[in-house]
């Protein structure tokens, strides 16, 4: 390979060494290429396997809300309601998590005593390590029950906003509950990214602000937030990507139905990922292939969001 040629001339070219080098270099680059191959394979296999059902589908895949795919005759299914639910849940999670995550990151970097800050870093990482199925269990058994009075109050006082229109779901297993748990799950990602950029704010900028008599908040607003904005946005988008693809918490908490409903306090809606997990064990006929098609849509959405996030983060690196 060309990669080894450039490094060999510097050394005495004895045959045995060269063979070892060539083998090792090729294995390493082979492993790298394999990763590209796997990613390409994910896209390719999903496309190939979904074609089967998409060709047999009798209705428009992108505008239909129903899901009648577990049949061999005239399957009719569409991803419209699922895509809406996916975006809705992720948006709720993002709106709830981002401000809190920025607050935590600021706390860790600028407010907490240094010793405590290191410990807090661990705790945030630990939050990220808790399996999603445990979040789901906690959410469905413990949290949704606790949220009932809160939802009632929300409906009482803010019911005039269509989002919070009643009647409140008796179980509390609503989109808002799912979004809330998703918010807790993506909190660590956004926090970690924000924390990293806040750490990188040049000390000169911060000291300049303080030397001009700025209070700590003014220093943060003038020196830290403008510098950290791209990093925070990138982190938020990574969090969004995670929330879009999160399966178990939604599958366990939400009591689903395939409608497009903006009412957060009523049961209804469903996300792509949760729909796949719930439907797969019972899928027959074109069912599996149709679910793979839904997965392909999810893959495309998350790919776009993640590439956007990486682009923003990478651009920041060039500037700093």
């Amino acid at each position: 390979m060309t990669t080894t040629d450039s490094s060999t001339p510097a050394r005495v070219p004895t045959g045995r060494r060269r063979i070892g080098d060539v083998i090792f270099a090729n294995t390493a680059s082979g492993a790298g290429a394999l990763i590209l191959l796997i990613l390409a394979g994910v896209a390719a296999f999903l496309i190939i396997q979904s074609m089967d059902s998409l060709r047999a589908n009798t209705v428009n895949f992108f505008t239909t809300t129903d899901w009648n795919a577990s049949t061999r005759e005239d399957p009719a299914f569409g991803v419209a309601a699922l895509a809406f639910g996916t975006v809705l849940a992720a948006t709720i999670a993002l709106l709830l998590a981002t401000p809190v995550a920025i607050g935590i990151a600021l706390f860790i970097v600028y407010y907490a005593p240094r010793r405590v800050a290191a410990l807090l870093g661990y705790i945030v990482d630990l939050l990220a390590a808790i399996p999603s199925v445990v979040y789901g269990l906690w959410g469905v058994v413990f949290l949704v029950g606790q949220l009932r009075p809160f939802y009632d109050a929300l409906e009482n006082y803010l019911g005039w906003i269509p989002l919070f229109a009643g009647p409140v779901s008796a179980t509390g297993r609503t989109m808002l509950s799912a979004g809330l748990v998703l918010a807790v799950m993506i909190l660590p990602i956004i926090t970690a990214m924000s924390r990293d950029v806040f750490h990188q704010v040049p000390q000169a900028n911060r000291e300049a602000a303080l030397a001009l008599g700025a209070t700590r908040w003014e220093m943060i607003r003038m020196a830290v937030l403008p510098f950290g904005r791209p990093g925070v946005i990138g982190g938020a988008m990574l969090g969004l990507g995670r929330a879009l693809g999160e399966t178990m918490a939604v599958a366990m908490i939400l009591s689903p139905s395939l409608v497009i409903s903006p009412f957060l306090l009523q049961s209804g809606n469903q996300t792509i990922a949760a729909h796949i997990a719930l439907q797969y064990p019972e899928a027959t006929g074109y069912g599996v292939s149709a679910l793979i098609a839904a997965g392909l849509v999810l893959f495309a959405i998350t790919l776009a969001v993640n590439m956007g996030a990486r682009f923003i983060v990478a651009r920041r690196k060039e500037f700093s």
Partner: peptide
Amino acid sequence: VMTGIPSIV
């Protein structure tokens, strides 16, 4: 990009 692949995918 691969770190962002949803687990269900």
